[in-house]
Design a protein around this nucleic acid. Structure first.
Length: 303
DNA sequence: GCGACAG
DNA sequence: ATCTTGTCGC
């Protein structure tokens, strides 16, 4: 199945260029123009790694509470550039904020559209049944800026096999949209690997029931289980289930091992599988693949 | 004012 | 995830 492959970095930098001369906006307002306020931190991140500070005027972006915010070339330089545009700065705060606030972005709210797509993908997911594969594989990705270092560790009758993949990413980390960032890695790494896929993320346990494990599972037509290291949403009840809106969407093997079904498997069967892999601990194969991605990144980053 | 916010 | 350019809600 196909899904939207948007370059959110390019789209975002295009929005920043829309801020008119003499105006400022906020991290949050840019996030809303992208289609989701939850992207506010990603806005700051994308500005921070912007390679063209003269072409893309990130100094025009400030905090919602009027604080000036940070700048790669230093806050002094940010203040200098803002003052040159007629923005009044005192004590690190924007004084003429209301008069100079720009929010009229020309946008079609891409993240809002991706949310609709996630709902559609979730409706195609299969959260029922057992799996009888003996073989399983785990996938993870580590990052340095826009470069992702992905790995797959495949277990087959006593043997471990490793695959690696280095790729540029066009989508930042935004809570709730991990599928759009990491699915390309899962797609390429899992080719010709006949195994149940363990994904370092959630599946069903997601605001739109479309965490990375589900997203990639449906898109690739593969069986997946999500194993996250922390809670995205919901509460762990006294029997270990993660409950959200009175629905059991996941299960906490422990505080740092949160299981939820991805695709072609039930929650109960997912729990059984992960418990089999390592008693009540985080599965060793996920630890292995994570270590592998970190090693890849450090190899490429001699420090 | 502090926590929530997959990776 | 890395090593830091956020915002909202309790």
């Amino acid at each position: 199945m196909n899904y939207t492959h948007i370059n959110l970095y390019d789209y975002f930098y295009g929005l920043v260029k829309q801020i008119p001369e003499g105006y400022i906006t906020t991290y949050g307002e840019l996030a809303k123009a992208l289609g989701d306020i939850r992207a506010a931190r990603a806005v700051g991140y994308m500005l921070s790694i912007n390679e063209d500070p003269d072409g893309i005027p990130c100094y025009k972006v400030v905090h919602t509470d009027r604080r000036m915010g940070k700048y790669a070339l230093g806050v002094e330089e940010k203040a200098r550039r803002l003052r040159k545009d007629g923005i009044i700065i005192s004590n690190g705060m924007v004084e003429n904020f209301n008069e100079r606030f720009f929010s009229d972005f020309k946008t079609d709210y891409p993240l809002a559209k991706l949310q609709e797509e996630q709902e559609k993908i979730a409706s195609m997911a299969d959260f029922a049944g057992d799996r009888d594969e003996e073989n399983y594989a785990a996938i993870d990705v580590s990052y340095e800026g826009r470069t992702g270092y992905g790995a797959l560790v495949y277990y087959d009758s006593g043997e471990y096999m490793v695959k690696n993949l280095e790729m540029k990413v066009n989508f930042p980390y935004i809570p709730g949209y991990l599928g759009y960032r990491e699915s390309p890695f899962i797609e390429k790494l899992s080719v010709n690997v006949d195994a149940l896929l363990l994904i370092d993320a959630n599946g069903l346990l997601h605001p739109r029931k479309c965490g990375l494990a589900t997203f990639a599972g449906v898109v690739l037509g593969r069986a997946t289980i999500g194993v996250a290291k922390s809670l995205l949403m919901g509460k762990i009840d006294d029997t270990g289930y993660v409950v959200y809106n009175n629905e059991k969407l996941g299960y906490a093997i422990n505080k740092h091992t949160i299981v939820s079904p991805g695709n072609m498997i039930s929650l109960e069967s997912s729990i059984k599988k992960i418990k089999l892999l390592g008693k009540n601990k985080y599965p060793a194969i996920l630890k292995m693949v994570h270590n592998e991605t970190v090693a890849m990144r450090k190899r490429r980053l001699p420090s």
